[in-house]
């Protein structure tokens, strides 16, 4: 009952098939949209936008890089300053007697059974050691510093920084051992005086000697550094 389709009908069917095919293909293409879809002027627009964006980002990049370099330089400065401060703190800690120290030095054992050792003699001994280049000195458990003092308690005992020193007591000094030994042995020195008073002393040289006694710093009440 179906009439034979005319040629025009077949062509129309083919055209419709072509339309369907083209439409479906186009839909697929749009789904995968990329730059190949775009027209020349649209592409130029996109390019312009990307260029200005890139410029902006470049600027931002330069700014951030400068900031980074500045921060890095600051950090290097900080590190150097910190190192210097650490070295300074060490030296000052040794000088102020707040740090335990070690190095070559001598020990001096002082025997004074009759209690003849007086504060002025102890002071002289410290002086002799300092003159011979001692960088750190201790007697018994007391670290001797610039603010140390000696006193007699009236019953033949010597007091150093408030601590009574029993005989025999041991002095430690860190410095050039040979110089220190020579300085202590000079005629008319403190040790010679001690001998004439009936005491005795031994000096021992050490390659490496430790002074563990430290001084506790009291907060300063009156003096302040001038900035």
């Amino acid at each position: 009952m179906r009439p034979r389709p005319s040629r025009a009908q077949i062509v129309a069917g083919l055209l419709c098939a072509l339309l369907g095919f083209a439409a479906a293909t186009q839909v697929r293409q749009v789904e995968r949209a990329d730059f190949s879809e775009l027209r020349q002027d649209e592409l130029i627009e996109v390019l312009d936008r990307l260029n200005s964006e890139a410029e902006l980002l470049e600027e931002q990049n330069a700014t951030l890089e400068g900031e980074r370099d500045r921060l890095q330089a600051n950090r290097n400065d900080d590190e150097a300053a910190q190192q210097a401060a650490r070295a300074r703190a060490e030296v000052q800690g040794i000088l102020a007697g707040t740090l335990p120290v070690e190095g070559p030095g001598i020990t001096l054992t002082w025997r004074d059974p009759e209690g003849q050792l007086t504060a002025p003699m102890a002071y002289l001994l410290v002086d002799e050691l300092r003159n011979a280049g001692a960088e750190a000195i201790s007697v018994g458990d007391v670290r001797i510093t610039a603010s140390s003092y000696f006193a007699d308690d009236g019953s033949g005992h010597l007091i150093a920084d408030g601590q009574a020193l029993a005989s025999p007591c041991e002095w430690r000094a860190i410095g050039d051992p040979a110089t220190l030994q020579t300085a202590l042995g000079i005629p008319g020195g403190v040790l010679a005086t001690l001998r004439t008073l009936g005491g005795s002393s031994d000096v021992t040289v050490h390659e490496s000697l430790a002074i563990d006694a430290v001084k506790r710093l009291e907060p300063l009440e009156h003096a302040a550094a001038i900035e």
């Binding site: 077949i10 055209l15 072509l18 369907g20 479906a24 697929r28 879809e37």
Partner: peptide
Amino acid sequence: IALLGLLVGVAVGLATQTDVPAFLA
């Protein structure tokens, strides 16, 4: 026939992953 062609065309277009040539895009 036209309707049939349309459906066939859509089916073929969806089934085959044809790339649109650049000059036709």
